[in-house]
């Protein structure tokens, strides 16, 4: 394992990434590398820059300084590099962002057909495969508004998987869900993790972090404050801010 990690360059690497919103320094010198198959949980208080960080990886946000490399492709702001990276990176949003005027199946087939030029037959076969995997194939002909929040989020996961990405980014995927629906989405994510998907998850679900994360990263004020294996992270956090944060988060669970 160690050898193979050395042989292969990291799947994602961020070096000294800086981002400002006007005068607000949103990301301060972020460096992070993610190996293939690794599962990372990003947590931290709101406004700490964790969502911004993962949104920079697939160029939904631009960065002012530093380098981002995904699967050997340097993100240099060119359309070509953005396209190449978005082909490898899937994303799931807090508010699902399914296309409301399309059925579940159409949501899943659009990108494979338009971006990869797949035929409708192939795209639908692929879509059914991944809808089956998130256990929602029976709803394929419905529209998003006819589904519960948990079901919609599982469709969103399937939609991203249909592009067969090498990495999945999750931006607070359970934050907009009613409590009784959180589990079905987390279970789907756990399944994905077990199958070896490389994942970066912004989430406050500490149970999920304990169960699947290889590393937990704590961010505050745009900086990475602490990162550790979940065991160490939860048992003996080093920094005062991490302790305070964990105290608050765990008190609510």
């Amino acid at each position: 394992m160690l050898n193979s990690a050395k042989d292969h360059p990291p799947l994602i690497s961020l070096e000294d990434v800086q981002k400002w919103y006007g005068a607000f320094h949103a990301l301060k010198s972020i460096s992070l590398s993610v190996r293939k198959g690794e599962k990372i949980v990003l947590c931290g208080p709101s406004g700490s820059g964790k969502s911004t960080l993962i949104r920079c990886i697939n160029a939904l946000e631009t960065i002012e300084e530093g380098t981002i490399v995904v699967e050997g492709q340097v993100l240099d702001g060119s359309t070509k590099s953005i396209d190449a990276i978005r082909r490898e990176v899937g994303m799931v949003f807090q508010s699902f962002n399914l296309f409301p005027h399309m059925t579940v199946l159409q949501n899943c087939t659009l990108a494979p057909m338009r971006v990869r030029g797949a035929s409708r037959t192939d795209a639908e076969r692929l879509a059914r495969k991944y809808l089956e995997r998130v256990r929602i194939l029976d709803q394929a002909e419905k529209y998003p508004a006819q589904l519960s929040g948990g079901q919609q989020q599982r469709v969103a996961i399937a939609r991203a998987l249909c592009m067969e990405p090498k990495v999945m980014l999750f931006d607070e995927p359970t934050s907009a869900l009613d409590p009784e629906m959180v589990k079905e989405v987390l279970d789907t994510m756990i399944g994905l993790a077990r199958d070896g998907m490389t994942m970066i998850c912004v989430t406050h679900e500490m149970g999920f972090a304990r169960q699947v994360a290889d590393r937990v990263i704590f961010m505050a004020s745009g900086e990475i404050i602490e990162e550790a294996e979940p065991e160490v992270f939860f048992k003996s956090p080093k920094h005062e801010r991490t302790k305070t944060f964990l105290g608050e988060i765990l008190a609510h669970h």
């Binding site: 697939n58 396209d83 978005r86 990176v89 296309f99 338009r114 971006v115 592009m163």
Partner: peptide, 8 residues
């Protein structure tokens, strides 16, 4: 954003 993330 969703369309962008999918590479459309």
């Amino acid at each position: 954003e969703a369309a962008n993330a999918l590479g459309l």
